[in-house]
């Protein structure tokens, strides 16, 4: 698929855990200010691929990659690339909400604080919580522990924490899979709202969710990129037989 305004360009990417090849020779680009969904059956390598995009896999000893991932003109796996700087600019929301066991307020301010944020913290907290559609629910108890929030609220707090950093890209790893249907709906609404300002890459095994929230969809199967295109086209007229089998529920 030809992308007009790419923010991330991936060329010939292989990802290995020890001897196992988890992602095989993927090449694709992520469109700026759009929502890109990565779908595929469990174990197809989609979370691995996502975590590679902001070097969260560095913490696994046996992990290694080859190929290039270009972000803003630079290879993020180049020898002089700094993972800390990359993660500041490419944020991440995890499968299970993981707020820090601190106050709601501190959960948001900690990232900006260590990264030398110069502006007003109160404003930033308010903006970020509003951005994550959580402000109204928590504005009176910002100093309470983040662990006192419900699961859905915790996940929106994690999103607020992420957007407080003003990242250029937000990676979401099945952000709603640990939530109940109502909270899921709220998170999806939020993604729809965030797409105006951010580039979002979301991994999901829920095809309806991919169809609802994304502009482009990438189908990954056993580490191989099978098909990549505009969501609407991919779900209505898939080009590959495997894609059709998967989205019609014949496997996976």
């Amino acid at each position: 698929m030809v992308i007009n305004d790419p923010i991330l360009s991936i060329w010939n990417l292989n990802i290995r855990y020890g001897q196992t090849l988890a992602v095989k020779n993927n090449s694709f680009e992520i469109e700026k200010n759009k929502v890109t969904a990565i779908i595929g059956p469990s174990g197809c390598g989609k979370s691995t691929l996502l975590r590679t995009l902001n070097r969260m896999n560095d913490f696994i000893d046996s992990f290694n990659t080859d190929g290039t991932i270009n972000f803003d003109g630079n290879d993020i796996y180049a020898a002089d690339a700094d993972p800390v700087e990359i993660r500041r600019r490419i944020g991440m929301v995890f499968q299970k909400p993981n707020p820090f066991p601190k106050s709601i307020y501190k959960n948001i301010t900690w990232g900006p604080q260590i990264n030398g944020y110069q502006g007003d913290m109160d404003t930033l907290v308010e903006e970020s919580l509003k951005g994550a559609a959580l402000w109204d629910e928590v504005k009176d108890r910002l100093n309470e522990s983040a662990l006192s929030l419900s699961g859905g609220q915790q996940q929106r707090l994690c999103i607020a924490r992420c957007i407080a950093m003003r990242p250029e890209v937000i990676l979401m790893d099945e952000p709603a899979s640990a939530l109940d249907p109502k909270s899921t709906a709220r998170v999806e609404e939020l993604i729809a709202k965030l797409r105006q300002d951010y580039t979002i890459v979301i991994v999901t095994h829920n095809m309806q969710q991919a169809a609802r929230v994304s502009d482009n969809t990438l189908f990954l199967y056993e580490g191989e990129l099978i098909e990549y295109g505009p969501t609407k086209a991919l779900f209505t007229k898939p080009e590959k037989q495997q894609t059709e089998d998967y989205i019609t529920g014949r496997f996976g």
């Binding site: 902001n54 990359i86 993660r87 500041r88 991440m92 995890f94 993981n98 820090f100 260590i114």
Partner: peptide, 15 residues
């Protein structure tokens, strides 16, 4: 301490 908590920190660009 759960790994997820640390990863949350790293994902915000912390050293």
């Amino acid at each position: 301490v759960p790994v997820s908590l640390r990863q949350g920190g790293y994902a915000l660009g912390a050293t």
